[in-house]
Amino acid sequence: MLNPGFHQIPRGMVATVVTHLEMVTPPVATTVAHNFTFTRHTAADHDWYRTLFRAVGEDWLWFSRLHLADNVLTAILHDPDYEVWTLQDQGRDIGLLEIDHRTQGACELAFFGLTPESVGKGAGRVMMAQAIARAFTRDINRFHVHTCTLDSPQALPFYTRAGFIPVKQEIEIAPDPRLTGHLPATAGAHVPVFK
């Protein structure tokens, strides 16, 4: 338990406040006209996946998948209860959407993001409609997601507009992926590096 006040973060680490959100029933579905397409990847190659993961998440210091051994990542990506989708614009992958049904009665929006050049063009709303529809294809009592202060400042308001309700916060401290070599030194320019 943290006491009120400041707490020094060890050098070589990054710290973030993580907000957990959930929805227990799907909101009323709305149709958004678009020219995007979705592709589900049931046997995603781990190298292809990591390339897209970096393209979407590098600016926000997404690193959790980069630490996994190939066989561990492949087992997740190939699990029949784990859905990997890409949003495509004219055949090009511009968004990553991951739906995790591996826990009975719940579904996690495990990853959700767009490539930087695709932000602000309505693609996020289209992806969220797909995420909600996919989550509630099964009998679940909660659909949950988390975001953090390393993510885009647009993420938390976007999730609440989509119908998610904040339910708790945590502080996460992890090795800085720019210092471990998992991401380039230029990643996450909004977060200082402390060697």
Results as ranks from 00 to 15, higher is better:
Leu183Lys: 05
Thr180Tyr: 10
Val191Arg: 12
Val18Asp: 13
Val14Asp: 00
His78Phe: 01
Gln104Cys: 00
Gly181Asp: 03
Lys168Ser: 14
His20Asp: 10
Phe136Ser: 08
Ala15Pro: 14
Ile99Gly: 04
Arg65Phe: 01
Ala133Tyr: 07
Leu77Glu: 05
Ala75Ile: 05
Leu150Lys: 13
Arg50His: 08
Asp59Ile: 00
Leu96Phe: 04
Arg54Asp: 01
Glu83His: 15
Val84Trp: 08
Met13Val: 05
Pro192Trp: 07
Leu109Ile: 05
Leu179Gln: 07
Thr42Phe: 00
Ala187Cys: 08
Leu61Glu: 00
Ala69Arg: 12
Asn3Phe: 08
Glu170Ser: 15
Arg161Gly: 04
Thr30Trp: 06
Arg11Thr: 10
Trp62Gly: 02
Pro10Gly: 05
Thr103Asp: 10
Gln169Arg: 15
Pro177Leu: 03
Thr51Gln: 11
Leu150Trp: 14
Thr186Ser: 15
Arg11His: 11
Thr42Ile: 02
Asp139Ser: 14
Ala133Pro: 00
Pro157Ala: 14
Met23Ala: 12
Val18Gly: 06
Gln88Trp: 00
Pro177Val: 03
Ala106Asn: 05
Asp176Ala: 12
Val145Glu: 02
Val32Phe: 07
Ser118Ile: 06
Asp45Leu: 06
Glu170Val: 09
Pro166Val: 10
Ala29Gly: 09
Pro177Lys: 02
Ile9Ala: 03
Asp93Asn: 14
Arg178Asn: 13
Cys107Pro: 12
Gln88Cys: 13
Ala55Asn: 12
Gly12Arg: 02
Thr186Cys: 10
Phe6Met: 07
Cys148Asn: 12
Val191Asn: 07
Glu172Lys: 14
Leu96Glu: 01
Ala69Cys: 00
Leu68Phe: 03
Pro4Leu: 08
Ile171Cys: 09
Val72Lys: 08
Ala174Ser: 13
Pro26Trp: 05
Gly105Val: 04
Thr39Tyr: 01
Glu58Trp: 00
Gly57Lys: 00
Thr31Pro: 02
Ala185Ile: 15
Pro177Met: 03
Phe63Val: 01
Arg50Asp: 03
Ser152Thr: 13
Val193Glu: 02
Ala43Asn: 13
Thr160His: 00
Lys168Thr: 09
His7Tyr: 06
Lys121Leu: 13
Leu52Lys: 09
Trp62Val: 03
Glu108Ala: 12
Val56Gln: 04
Val191Tyr: 01
